[in-house]
Design a protein around this nucleic acid. Sequence first.
DNA 1: GGCGCTAAACTAAACGTTTTGTAAAGGAGG
DNA 2: CCTCCTTTACAAAACGTTTAGTTTAGCGCC
Lengths: 349, 349
Amino acid sequence: MAATMKDVARRAGVSVYTISKYVNGGTLKEKNRKAVEEAIHALGYRPNAIAQSLRTSYSRTVGVLVPTLDSRYNLSAIASIERTLAQYGYGALICDCGGDAALEEEKLDFLLRRTVDGIILIPADRQAPHIAKAVRRNVPVVALDRLPEGIACDAALSNNREAVQAAVKSLVELGHKRVAFIGGSQQTFTARERMYGYLEGLRQGGADNFDEYIKQTDGTVEDGFRAMMDLWLLPERPTAVIAAESELSMGVFLAVTKRRIFVPDELSIIGYDDQSISHLVRPAICAVEQPVEKLGDIAAKLVLRRIGGDHSGFPRVSISPSQMKGGESVGRCLVMPAGSRIGGGRYLR
Amino acid sequence: MAATMKDVARRAGVSVYTISKYVNGGTLKEKNRKAVEEAIHALGYRPNAIAQSLRTSYSRTVGVLVPTLDSRYNLSAIASIERTLAQYGYGALICDCGGDAALEEEKLDFLLRRTVDGIILIPADRQAPHIAKAVRRNVPVVALDRLPEGIACDAALSNNREAVQAAVKSLVELGHKRVAFIGGSQQTFTARERMYGYLEGLRQGGADNFDEYIKQTDGTVEDGFRAMMDLWLLPERPTAVIAAESELSMGVFLAVTKRRIFVPDELSIIGYDDQSISHLVRPAICAVEQPVEKLGDIAAKLVLRRIGGDHSGFPRVSISPSQMKGGESVGRCLVMPAGSRIGGGRYLR
DNA sequence: GGCGCTAAACTAAACGTTTTGTAAAGGAGG
DNA sequence: CCTCCTTTACAAAACGTTTAGTTTAGCGCC
């Protein structure tokens, strides 16, 4: 068994109070300090964090609840959260609820029973009544990436809608009339936001939207691949496409490689978030980059602030701008609408 | 503040003992059971896990310590570990030590102070004296993926050496004399094992090894890309390559796409672990697949067993076989050694 | 030396559980 | 009715800390 304060106290010939004081940085008499230091060192004493938690009701632990761990995005977020928490001496208790709302509730309960000091979660579902329960228990909750509906709750989001909207608008301004959109599951907040952004972008650019250019998928690499292959089979192919999830971008890239589609001459591409490959591919893929690490960091700092008792500006929804990462995958539209001509009358296709 | 046992007891008109008994599944008198259930429900009582931990000295938490969270492989392992632990009601306290041995020690200490019941770690370094400390504290430690040197310690590994060896041998048997190897950092156990496997495979196949075909890298996508580009600049290009890390495979694939290398006619490729794309690419990349999920599961179950007091067969090193995933990226060697001829004397290149 | 003041140390009571003796209640058997 | 046994409940002591309430030690000053 590990040494306890009592053991140290006995050895140093003082009371446990003195040990506690030493550990927490109080001032001791020179003689006692020496003795205590000696005893601590000799016994290899480390304070028991569980007992500290029980007594102070602070566990210095934050629960992190995500719909799945099997995603690059969540991974980066968690990595960043963990890093920031660790800086402040906090640990991360991580749960994966498999995207299931019932399981999410259960895990939330699990975390609360462990008296985590706060919770950072990526909501699995738009509805999240159980989150209210945590809030009622006075445990600060910060939503990451998605905003749960109908609940006042701190959040760290990126500007999904505006980012996509700007991207689409820029495509339209380059002359693209047939801009396709490949999006993730409409169950999620972000996917919907991006979809709205797409529609708004078209509208602002003065372009029409056509249902056949909109692909709603589940957001996997395979989905992106399939969607792009399908789009290319349309009688009127799109001249530009925006893939609104990291995995979808990858799928689109694979499809484009397979079909030997010339980018950007035949097709302009804007991807999302794919740090790992987009800058190595030729042509480099232009992509909307979410500030994932930043979001994680913001969420962590926010939850720590709430834990520290600073409740100012609740609910605080922080929206961080995405970056448009340059690349050569976007170009002026070279394909003329059917029936129109260029200069000498040569169709470009 | 949340309701405590005392509150419930008062409301139900019984002693805390009775509540405890109810919570832990003892038998109560019908009348008391009713009253207790009512009180628990009315007050929304949940047992405080911290207090339970303090009293029982079991926290039902396992520490997971990885050199970095920014890796697909570690992520999958963690996902699997978390899943298995959750099944048994255990939580995962996750730490990232940034590959730094000193930080690893610190985090290990952090975990021990929280009285985790066990630890699963992917060792950052070959040397890991601090691990012995945990073992001395009677906290079961299971190494994942890599084996720390000089310490008796349970472990869940995959058969890195044999898998690569078999892969290389199969290439040699297909006639390849110039098989290149792109490996990860030699600081890590697995990278070294795979390297040895490569050398052994060549030897067993009866092929020579040449330094210029061996690329030791840090294992990033970019490294794989560069290494492959470099290899293709050699006067005598390799006819086959094995990329011994997931990210390296991706890099090789990108290089091959960029250079328009015909696979497998000009170059046979064997990758490692790249679940996400290798089956979508054409030709599909042949790859050594580590049973990551299985390793995570094994490690979790093993640590739970140790926690449960079963110390049989210590140290237990479980080695799970990798699978060779089929693909069309491997073919018979079509390039003749300089000076040799085929049939009518036509060089195939 | 006695008084007052401050700094340092001590004792004991928490925190919310589990668990170890004990005691009360409730039958069964004589 | 009494005894004996079983079942169920109780009160109190842990677990390893922090902290409020007290006591002691040390020192300067009249």
